[in-house]
Nucleic acid binder design. Sequence first.
DNA 1: TATAGTACTATGTATTGCATAGTACTACTG
DNA 2: CAGTAGTACTATGCAATACATAGTACTATA
Lengths: 121, 121
Amino acid sequence: MSAQVTTENTEAQMRKGILELVILSVLARNDAYASDIINELKETKLIVVEGTLYPLLTRLKNGELLTYRWEESTQGPPRKYYTLTEKGREFLKQLNSTWDDLVLAVNKARTQSSTSNSNQE
Amino acid sequence: MSAQVTTENTEAQMRKGILELVILSVLARNDAYASDIINELKETKLIVVEGTLYPLLTRLKNGELLTYRWEESTQGPPRKYYTLTEKGREFLKQLNSTWDDLVLAVNKARTQSSTSNSNQE
DNA sequence: TATAGTACTATGTATTGCATAGTACTACTG
DNA sequence: CAGTAGTACTATGCAATACATAGTACTATA
């Protein structure tokens, strides 16, 4: 069945690639386990669910951008606390740049008049 | 074979959903055929290739956000000139809003300090 | 021992960007 | 008229990620 064109669907597509950026950003500030990350992103209106987050954390760890340690908890099972690696920090810098460029380009494409407008600063 | 974590790959993922927005934005300004769109986006540093653009234009047309008319050309085959529909204009407004919210949220997540920073405006 | 809450793993689906191969139209040249 | 180059478009399949769903395991409490 072909996809319906809806803003919900397009937003889901827009989120692809972006969650990686914001999760690395959260971990650049503090070590965290999954629930910390979910709560911190919720404050910035980025809703991430566990079924998305766990596979993504695993991908990032397998890509050597993250490491983790187990920590006991008194509230339930032990938790995986994730830490950004040095490689992860470098990657995040590049990703920030990529994101900034993309947002600039999209906003230009959204507002640009005809080709004679290229001297706009 | 598992994907390598590269900024090129993540940028490709980030572009998902975004091309729809910028193509509709181009067509909100002027009717255009595929090559016009490619050239106009190139000026804003958004590189789109034909193999991506044609299927996307077809999807948007099938979703009733676009219509087209054939126009003869003296340089080669006839061209499909695309026009935004009224439904397309409404959809684009919603998409603009979705995009603005997403960019704001991502930028907040990138820079936010701990939870005590919530009174920042 | 059983249950609720919490943390994580495994798996599959839906969707789009993109590459590749192919067909068709027009102008130009021989 | 036939052949070629340039241009415009169609058809198809692959790669990758967001997300849903089902399941397992740990801890505290009754």
